[in-house]
Simulated scan of single mutants.
Amino acid sequence: MIDDLYNYPLYRPPSEAYSLIIQITLGCSHNKCTFCNMYKGKQFTIKPFEKVKSEIDFFRSQIKHIDKIFLADGDALIMRTESLIKILKYINLKFPEVKRISLYASPRSILLKTEKELEEIRNLGVSLVYMGLESGDNETLKEINKGATAEEITEAALKMKKIGFQLSVTVIAGILGNKDSTNHAVNTGKVISKIIPDYLGILCLVVHPETDIDIQCKKGEFVEASGDQIMEEIKLMIENINIPDNEKIIFRSNHASNYLNLKGNFPEDKDRLLDDINYAISNDYIRQRNEQYLKYSKKGF
């Protein structure tokens, strides 16, 4: 069975729901962010080409047609360029019909590669890259142990856009808990304005077991932000996203973690998105949403 080939847990972005996932690495090359437990149980490993090749062969024998392929795990771009190119060439040989190859990339993995190397990777079909910004504020990035500064993240993002990759970026609201998040929100909006990613997603912090933030919570050193605090934070982020009229960012804030589903494009929908947030806050929507969530969670839904 196909599932027998995967090393779990297995993660992919929501937009890769119908993609073939090929694990070319296991785990995350950084794996030190205070909020993340996705790969805590895995030692980062780059899989040998022959193993990846045999898995690609098996997938081809089982799948008649596939449009999209996602290369897992957490930072597939970190592998040596010649190794990644070898895999991509074999994917193109076995799946000539594929229209898009995508992967997660860290700022570090991007900055380690030359523009020429990235151009080769782009020319072999990798057209979409997912990168976690989390915050555009250096103090916040240091606190969450992101392993990169806002300047490095910006440099990495602009490098990918220059070469022609589509870029999907995520940020996290509530990452500082109930502390003052003004700098986090304002500077995140400003960095997004510099990067102008093709796609932007705002997630809300979920405290996962066995993370550093979970440990801090249990010690009373971290207190989660309220729903209203998070909505004010998202509002401030959006207020500080300012891009030219001839540019476009497809924006979504509709993950299960979000208090309010938001959807639109920058810059044309900015005012409407702010109106939606103001309406939700002024009409006590967040409190009602929390009460409804608690009601159903107690019933086991």
Rank of each mutant, 00 (worst) to 15 (best):
Y6M: 11
S19Y: 05
I22S: 01
T25Y: 04
L26R: 14
C36I: 08
M38A: 15
Y39L: 08
K40A: 02
K47P: 01
K53I: 03
F59L: 14
S61W: 04
S61C: 09
K68T: 05
G74E: 05
S83E: 15
L84H: 06
K89P: 02
L103S: 14
R108L: 14
R108Y: 15
S109M: 09
I110V: 15
L118E: 06
R122F: 13
R122Q: 12
V126Y: 05
S135M: 01
G136E: 03
E139N: 13
I144C: 04
A150Y: 03
T154W: 00
A157M: 02
K161M: 08
K162N: 13
V171A: 15
I172P: 01
I172C: 04
A173N: 04
D180E: 11
T182K: 14
H184N: 08
T188C: 04
I192D: 08
K194P: 01
I195L: 10
D198H: 12
D198C: 03
T211Y: 12
T211W: 06
D212N: 12
I213H: 08
D214I: 09
K218F: 03
K219N: 14
E221M: 12
G227S: 09
D228A: 05
I230A: 03
E233C: 03
K235N: 11
L236I: 01
M237N: 05
N240Y: 03
I243A: 14
P244S: 11
A256V: 13
S257C: 10
Y259V: 00
N261C: 12
D269W: 02
K270D: 09
L273Y: 10
D275E: 15
D276V: 00
A280L: 05
A280Q: 05
R289P: 00
